[in-house]
């Protein structure tokens, strides 16, 4: 479904991605692991169309996405929850969700999507008239995931959804991803919390210094000595 081939991206003269290739298939949960500065966010932003690659390509159902404007990438069923949530803070929960269903295809499915989001996060229904800025970090993350789900995606990309959120709510967010996946949506997850990510992913890639250092089924990576040492610590954290 999503295919990335030999992707190279640079920020000015600094090379951020150096020949990255990976795939995400329909219905999969794929995790992307790696240290800070490895280029994980860059990869997601490039797939979404906000950054332009220097070389390589991103294809979606066989279509080259390099020349597609970011809002049309969304329209094709590829949604993203950016790092730091990036909500419209002065608007209400309801308005943020409504904006998720802005594009024509999403708008057609608007009522159903909204019910699905409120079913995933019942807390949001109670707070739908509240201004987003007044919510806690965890609740804001729910809105961010909800807004992306309102675009009616077939693939949901998330950049560090557990960052800066109370541990109690991290589980709620990550559990919701399993529910979302059961509904037929593929998930591509960048996550610091390696153990939790590998627990719910089917497959995973490890990105180091702009290159794919390892990939395989999540269960295998959990046993991989390099991964264990670098990301899970000597005592398995």
């Amino acid at each position: 479904m999503l295919e990335v081939q030999g992707l190279e991206v640079a920020h000015g003269d600094v090379r951020a991605l150096d020949g990255v290739s990976l795939t995400v298939g329909a219905g999969e949960i794929v995790a992307l692991l790696g240290p800070n500065g490895a280029g994980k966010s860059t990869l997601l932003l490039t797939i979404a169309g906000l950054l332009r690659p220097r070389a390589g390509r991103v294809t979606w159902d066989g279509e080259d996405l390099r020349r597609v404007s970011p809002h049309l990438v969304v329209e094709r069923g590829l949604a993203m929850v950016p790092e730091g949530r990036r909500l419209f803070g002065s608007m209400t929960v309801e308005e943020n969700l409504a904006l998720g269903a802005f594009a024509p295809r999403a708008r057609a499915a608007r009522e159903r999507s909204l019910e699905r989001v409120y079913a995933l996060f019942p807390a949001l229904r109670e707070r739908r008239r509240q201004v987003v800025r007044s919510l806690s970090g965890g609740q804001q993350q729910m809105v961010a995931v909800g807004r992306a789900m309102m675009t009616n995606p077939r693939l949901l990309m998330l950049d560090e959804p557990s960052l800066g959120i109370a541990p109690r709510l991290v589980d709620a967010i990550l559990d919701s991803l399993v529910d979302i996946n059961r509904g037929g949506v593929a998930v591509f997850l960048v996550e610091q919390n390696v153990r939790a990510a590998l627990a719910l992913a089917h497959r995973a890639y490890v990105l180091e210094q702009g290159r794919i250092a390892a990939h395989g089924p999540a269960a295998d990576l959990l046993e991989d000595p390099h991964v264990r040492q670098a990301y899970l610590g000597p005592f398995g954290r």
């Binding site: 979404a48 169309g49 906000l50 404007s69 970011p70 809002h71 969304v74 329209e75 949604a79 993203m80 950016p82 990036r86 909500l87 419209f88 803070g89 002065s90 608007m91 308005e95 409504a98 904006l99 998720g100 802005f102 594009a103 999403a106 807004r147 992306a148 309102m150 675009t151």
Partner: peptide, 24 residues
């Protein structure tokens, strides 16, 4: 108005607006 909200969204964070499918 739908596009009025889109205008406000683009004013607040144009990249996030693009990621929600708004033609900024």
């Amino acid at each position: 108005w739908r596009w009025g909200q889109a205008i406000r969204a683009a004013a607040e964070d144009w990249q996030a607006a693009l990621l929600t499918g708004i033609d900024v």
